[in-house]
């Protein structure tokens, strides 16, 4: 299987190791991975901020960049959702582009969904050991149906003990630009998420969207929690003891 990785701008800037972990996982699943060089941002921030023209321009750029790849895999539920579910909406008034958006939508996958349901990964490259709790990021969950896939992957790791938190499906308060427009509200919501996650006693909070993870980690540290780790699912699945 030939897979083009859409790294996402947040991973590119903040946590390159997630991108490399994604590549490692895809290769472990038997994929040939390429990373198109010109990629930047999927456009979700501008689209959700109401700038349709800018969102359309970025959508077209992504569509062009990922022409011809068998699959496009994204280590983020919300960026994958932007490409799969929003591009056809953004480009609804341009039939040719819309058709191309729909075509791309058919081959774009969130990472864990791809590993479980398309690549049928057998053996994971990591041997992480410890207790984890999984935060379901909103757009991945409600837009892309990401719920069982990461849990199925974690279940393959004998050293992982999954401790489900209360209200795992509730928003962590990130909300993209919401987090920098309404910082106090956003952080107050994050505090509830941290409370639910920590109540499980898990050593590591795991999720599939870096935005949520930065939000949760930032809140934990501000609350004085120096021990609970916050990791992307790809990091956990590739972690070596």
């Amino acid at each position: 299987m030939r897979v083009a990785l859409f790294v996402t701008c947040l991973v590119d800037l903040m946590r390159p190791r997630i991108g490399f972990a994604a590549i490692e996982l895809l290769e472990a699943a038997g994929c040939d991975v390429i990373v198109p060089a010109g990629q930047t941002c999927c456009g979700q921030p501008v689209w959700n901020s109401g700038d349709r023209a800018a969102a359309a321009a970025l959508a077209k750029k992504v569509i062009d960049e990922f022409v011809g790849s068998e699959y496009v895999v994204v280590p983020s539920g919300s960026c994958a959702d932007q490409i799969r579910n929003e591009y056809p909406v953004i480009l609804a008034d341009e039939p040719e582009w819309r058709a191309r958006a729909v075509e791309l939508a058919g081959r774009v996958y969130e990472l864990t969904d791809f590993l479980v349901n398309v690549a049928h990964i057998k053996t994971l490259p990591g041997n992480f050991s410890g207790s984890v709790t999984y935060h379901d990021s909103c757009t991945g969950l409600r837009g892309m149906g990401i719920k069982e896939q990461p849990r199925a992957l974690l279940a393959k790791m004998s050293g992982v003990e999954l401790k489900e938190m209360a209200a795992a499906e509730e928003c962590c308060g990130f909300g993209g630009t919401f987090s920098v427009k309404f910082g106090e509200i956003s952080a107050a919501i994050a505090a509830k998420k941290c409370g639910n996650a920590c109540a499980t006693g898990a050593q590591t909070i795991v999720g599939g969207d870096l935005g949520c993870l930065l939000n949760i980690e930032g809140k934990l540290r501000r609350l004085g929690d120096e021990t609970t780790q916050v990791r992307h699912i790809a990091e956990v699945l590739t972690a070596k003891k």
């Binding site: 987090s179 309404f182 106090e184 952080a187 505090a191 930032g218 540290r221």
Partner: peptide, 11 residues
């Protein structure tokens, strides 16, 4: 606004 109520993890 981000750092009003939380830290910003470093890249």
């Amino acid at each position: 606004e981000w750092t009003l109520g939380r830290d910003f993890p470093a890249p």
